[in-house]
Design a protein around this nucleic acid. Sequence first.
DNA 1: GCTTATACATAATATTCTTATGTATATTTA
DNA 2: TAAATATACATAAGAATATTATGTATAAGC
Lengths: 114, 114
Amino acid sequence: MYSSELIRGTLKTIVLKLLKEEGKMYGYEITQKVKDLTAGKIQITEGALYPTLHSLEAEGFVTTETVHIGRRVRKYYKLTTDGRATARKKLSEMADFLGTMRILFGSDAGMKHA
Amino acid sequence: MYSSELIRGTLKTIVLKLLKEEGKMYGYEITQKVKDLTAGKIQITEGALYPTLHSLEAEGFVTTETVHIGRRVRKYYKLTTDGRATARKKLSEMADFLGTMRILFGSDAGMKHA
DNA sequence: GCTTATACATAATATTCTTATGTATATTTA
DNA sequence: TAAATATACATAAGAATATTATGTATAAGC
């Protein structure tokens, strides 16, 4: 796990990226997907995720659909047209930002898997 | 300029990195250096920087030396032994984190200058 | 003389996260 | 089969870290 301050600020962008790729996802699924993709290094907490999802909905970037699985409830999130535009913007900003970080921290930073 | 949320959490690490490289720096110099290195994309505000420097000092990671330039005052910051160890740790964490971000956002992310 | 740059600092506010707590169903394992 | 773990949602109190605004003062450029 990273010291949480680094992850701070990236959550919304991560969620938008996943929704853009997967079409629709529910909260718990998002936490597991991120955990998988990052080998457990990033573990999104529920206290952070659900408020973020709710705020994305309030901003009109996602719509929800509630599905019953047996007696349990799942709430799927999916991007709106606005949400797709925002995702594109945020993702391009993130790509640019990561490039800038690589300049700041040396071009070998973040290349462990190369 | 990036939407501020992305930069959030990286400030302390940026400062430690610069101090490690430059030996000693004063506050204003740090803001200019970061602005230069990032082509203006990251502009550290004073309200963020000075509290951060003060907290690094309170934690024992830097010492200060006040120098008079004419009638004006400059406060130089320099890493302690503890500070150097922390810098190493933070920088390696940052490198790892950037690698993880590149996995999450696609390996072309952050490679604009390649 | 006026504007901009240099150089420090702090306070009120906003944002975003952690930690703790709550509810409930489903599955695995001892 | 009882207990533990996993699935699945949610919110509230508090902490951390930034923004924005404000304050003080000297130096340089136009």
